[in-house]
Design a binder for these strands. Structure first.
Length: 300
DNA sequence: AAACTGACCAACCGCTTCCTG
DNA sequence: TCAGGAAGCGGTTGGTCAGTT
């Protein structure tokens, strides 16, 4: 299994790319597609390893990259997905069109992580660091405790999605076996292959006819909510919404003790049925987020 | 004006995963 | 089934630049 030795070769350039190198890489990919990254540098006349070329293309030169400031919506998406997925930047990037995993990772490390820490929230667990603080609000503490369970659920779901996406790609590549995509942008949109964009996972589920479909995912989410309620009592409000709301509307002196009274998305402490609805709504919003990924965005 | 500091981000490194023969 | 190559991924580094002393 050893590591790729490409970068160990002597005579290969490292460090920042020059405009000339960018131009060479861009011109070559526009004309031929990237093909094999390992073979690309010599074909394009670049003294770089294939890995470096791939990185330069995916993180900087790709035409479908959006640069500049992250929007509030994007920030919220990153925070929510990070709570669910952890440092799985490529998976998070899947749900943020035109943003690269590297960019998201950098933004998290330089902005969002610090903001969370400053607010007394552990950026790894997304739980308040101060026990006393969390004890002051049992509902949110319980919800926070349930987050790991939720993450496990999400992780399993993503693995299933990945399997389905792979199966779909196989099926599609059979269909398009001899089809060569001419557009470099199109070839890169699938990121890792030249296969056509995979259908959205939920559509695949529907197509497959068995094992679920969107309603079943939502049903599963509902089951999780019910199970959580059985295990830990009713969940008061939505922890995730609370802290993302706090974060994005951070006035500097707010704390979780008043979190339930927060912004428009935050639902205060309520009775059982409403809480269940809140969680269903929350899950629906996450599922919508997942399901609303652009149809041509890379799925794993 | 110079030195220092911290933020930012492009790029590298090395491990893991996937694919193919 | 297995081994090796290729690509993907996430952690980390180092250069640059703006702000501060």
């Amino acid at each position: 299994m050893g590591r790729s030795p490409c970068c160990d070769k002597v005579g290969l350039k490292k460090g920042p790319w020059t405009p000339e190198e960018d131009q060479s890489l861009l011109a070559y990919i526009e004309e031929h597609g990237h093909g094999s990254w390992r073979a690309l540098p010599s074909k394009a006349g670049l003294q770089r390893c294939g890995k470096s070329c791939r990185l330069r293309w995916t993180n900087y030169l790709r035409p479908d990259i959006k640069r500049g400031k992250f929007t509030l919506q994007e920030e919220q998406t990153i925070i929510q997905l990070h709570a669910l997925l952890g440092n799985r930047w490529s998976a998070i990037a899947t749900h943020l069109p035109k943003r690269t995993d590297n960019e998201i990772k950098n933004y998290w490390n330089t902005h969002l992580k610090k903001r969370l820490t400053k607010m007394g929230i552990d950026p790894i667990t997304h739980k308040p660091k101060d026990d006393a603080l969390s004890n002051s609000n049992h509902g949110q503490a319980k919800t926070a405790a349930n987050l790991s369970h939720m993450a496990q659920w999400e992780s399993a779901r993503l693995e299933a999605e990945a399997r389905l996406a792979r199966q779909s790609k196989l099926r599609m590549s059979n269909l398009f076996n001899n089809h060569q995509l001419g557009s470099p942008a199109a070839s890169e949109l699938s990121s890792t292959t030249t296969a056509p964009p995979a259908p959205r996972c939920l559509d695949i589920l529907r197509e497959d006819g068995g094992e679920g479909g969107e309603d079943d995912w939502k049903g599963l989410a509902g089951e999780w909510v019910s199970e959580s309620n059985e295990q830990g009592g009713m969940v008061e409000g939505t922890f995730m919404e609370t802290f993302t709301d706090l974060l994005l509307n951070n006035s500097g002196d707010r704390s979780f003790s008043d979190g339930c009274g927060g912004g428009a998305n935050v639902v205060g402490s309520k009775g059982g049925g409403d809480c269940c609805d809140d969680n269903k709504n929350y899950w629906n919003s996450i599922l919508n987020l997942v399901n609303s990924s652009p149809t041509n965005s890379p799925m794993f």
